[in-house]
Design a protein around this nucleic acid. Sequence first.
DNA 1: GTCTATACTGTGATAGAC
DNA 2: GTCTATCACAGTATAGAC
Lengths: 197, 197
Amino acid sequence: MPKVTEQYRETRRDEIAQAALRCFAKKGFTGASMADIIAESGLSAGAIYGHFESKQQIMLSVASLVIGDAVTELETLNAGGVVPTPSTVVMTILAGVTSDVSHNQILLQVWGEAMVDPKIRELVSDVLTQIRPIYLRFLTAWAEEHEGLSKHDATTWASRLVPVTMGLAHGYIVQSALFPDFDRPAYLASIRELLPG
Amino acid sequence: MPKVTEQYRETRRDEIAQAALRCFAKKGFTGASMADIIAESGLSAGAIYGHFESKQQIMLSVASLVIGDAVTELETLNAGGVVPTPSTVVMTILAGVTSDVSHNQILLQVWGEAMVDPKIRELVSDVLTQIRPIYLRFLTAWAEEHEGLSKHDATTWASRLVPVTMGLAHGYIVQSALFPDFDRPAYLASIRELLPG
DNA sequence: GTCTATACTGTGATAGAC
DNA sequence: GTCTATCACAGTATAGAC
């Protein structure tokens, strides 16, 4: 199998997913029809069904794209080598999620869909089980280093702080998507005041 | 016009809305069909269309029901006469929103729908403009009383804290709906630690 | 082996006859 | 109030062009 072909298919898939993303951002997961996606992608029905089994698969692909942002961005913190403060962790994850406005909008839709679509729910759940330990690791490291706690105590302390820390991020995402005049910098500043570090 | 008739109609409307709520909780706003709602309500298509103009109207009615919980519950704080702590305010609003699990689930769907449906968006926006000032008032009063700030300083302080305070609530709602093993009491305890008061 | 154009089949919301 | 017809449109399959 020539490598070119595989890459080509991958690219096509991505193009379709991006077109679908734009449609979903405008009309929602269920509101956007295959016809919309077909038109937006500039391809034809058959072409699309050659790359995706169903609309459901496209939805999953887009959802995965959007919620994956968080993990991607968090990984960059590892590269730094230094132990980030709790508020830095939150701000980093938010930078990933809300850099693209349409991603942010779709994220809320993904959460909504997760309430009724088991596949999406599973996807969200999977990403959580990736993110939670990362949060925990960073917060634990910080508590050890800056609060002088033992590894055990630091872990306990961190695991209590993780949910609210994530909650603050969730709040940012919600308000960012819902309130047109949401003051993002002010929110981030408040996070820095509230969280230790 | 006999009063009985009006009350009767109101009751019927409410029954239909409740039936619709159950359907939406199970299958989502767009996933639930009129046929579902008809079956769940035990009525017929014609009967329902006698009380609601369209499915859209039913959706709005249910959405309003669900996001109205917050306001309803907040009002109870007024009755007490004492100035609640910031964390008490959050916990009160959460008590209203998440007491009924299906309401909580639908709330996420409402947020998602708000991304693409202007009517729903408007509804959400309206409720916010009701809630924000209430938060602000309570937090300001608390800052005056317990931090000894002037009215002006207290207001400034409060308006900076309102978004994150609401954010913590949003985080609770999101995690409560998405994570089956979410530890609610632990989250509330962390809120108490984080927020002043 | 990809794509285009078009046809098919079920189902949705709703209107209107009983 | 119920029941049933309508009518548009959804997602998808297919038949053939490049």
